[in-house]
């Protein structure tokens, strides 16, 4: 085990844990943002630089500070390490710069983007960015491409996190898309006309932090904050598929099916394309109950799960919701 101090808070984690995951163990506002790192997918992380933190003391043995900011998502803890994130102004300044870099070639087309409302980049920019831009040049644009019957690639929005490439490598039989070209001309693509249509290829939509890979069966159907997420499952015939999903309802209609994500937007149980794209009837599913939505999410603004004054009295509420409500009790009016 290693004990570290993160923004003044002590936490003990197993050796080999990353700084980011140690911070997530503490939870709350001190957790660094992550745009490319994705715990369940090997090889991710280190690229977007959003999670850079200051290591003020390397370890108990060698308490020297690390000379540069380090990516917390791939840097492992050492016993006695002291890390500064929200308590270090230079970290916050650099993060502001990263937002700016990620946005200069982003189209900022949130009003017509299906990802709006559950977009990591939108959240990141809102929390860490500034409202103006210093970029006067033309932005990089690409044509939209349909890669297969279910997925649309809108490369203009991509932040080159590589998540979808690693996902396809690790979940599907035969990867057909990758990162082509280099520098700011690099793009996600299949090079030749090719379609991404493998059993688990739909998961690339869930791992995409922005609206670059979207579900064509859900395209322009509804803003996500007008839909109601409900946990459900089915006995999927595919042995590798968990069958545990979220159904996104508008009225009585299931508009889309996604895998379940944790509070950091990470999918732990992958689902197959049949569950995702072809089971859009309530009768296909066993309903478990409302999904928990973070109170910070815009989706919760229209969510029936709130307000809950005393969560303990609602027996079936997911444990995560109970924890969240205990930590962040609903606002009381008139305060």
């Amino acid at each position: 085990m290693a004990k570290i101090t993160f923004d003044g808070i002590e936490v003990e984690v197993p050796d080999g844990t990353t700084i980011l995951n140690a911070a997530r163990k503490i939870g709350g506002n001190i957790v660094p943002p992550a745009m490319c790192y994705y715990t369940p997918i090997k090889g991710t992380g280190g690229k977007c630089r959003a999670c850079l933190v200051k290591v003020a003391a390397g370890s108990a043995k060698d308490p020297r500070p690390m000379p540069k900011l380090v990516p917390s998502c791939i840097t492992t803890v050492q016993d006695g390490m002291v890390v500064e994130n929200t308590t270090n102004q230079s970290v916050l300044d650099v993060r502001k710069g990263i937002v700016e870099m990620l946005l200069i070639n982003h189209p900022l087309d949130c009003p017509v983007c299906d990802q709006a409302g559950e977009c990591d980049l939108q959240n990141f920019a809102f929390e860490h960015g500034v409202a103006t831009t210093r970029y006067e040049e033309e932005r990089r644009t690409f044509e939209k491409i349909d890669i297969g019957p279910y997925i649309q690639l809108h490369m203009t929005r991509c932040i080159l996190c590589y998540r979808c490439v690693y996902t396809a490598d690790q979940l599907t039989e035969r990867r057909v898309h990758g990162v082509l070209g280099r520098g700011d001309a690099a793009e996600i693509g299949t090079y030749i006309d090719n379609i991404i249509d493998q059993d688990f290829s739909g998961n690339v939509i869930d791992v995409c932090p922005v609206g670059a890979l979207t579900d064509k069966t859900f395209r322009f159907k509804q803003r996500v904050w007008f839909t109601k997420p409900v946990n459900a499952h089915r006995n999927c015939e595919n042995p590798k598929c968990s069958g545990n999903v979220v159904l996104w309802y508008k009225g009585k209609d299931v508009l889309r099916v996604t895998a379940r994500k944790d509070e950091y937007g990470e999918v732990k149980e992958w689902i197959c394309n049949t569950c995702r794209f072809e089971k859009k009837e309530t009768s296909d599913w066993t309903i478990e109950g409302p999904s928990h939505i973070q109170r910070t999410s815009v989706i919760s603004a229209n969510h029936y799960e709130l307000p809950v004054v005393n969560p303990q009295v609602i027996a079936d509420l997911p444990e995560s919701s109970v924890r969240d409500l205990e930590n962040n009790p609903p606002l009381k009016l008139g305060r």
Partner: peptide
């Protein structure tokens, strides 16, 4: 010559 992997270099060199 930027490989395009990390965002400050990918975007900043072009800028």
């Amino acid at each position: 010559e930027s490989c395009g992997q990390c965002s400050p270099c990918r975007e900043g060199t072009g800028w």
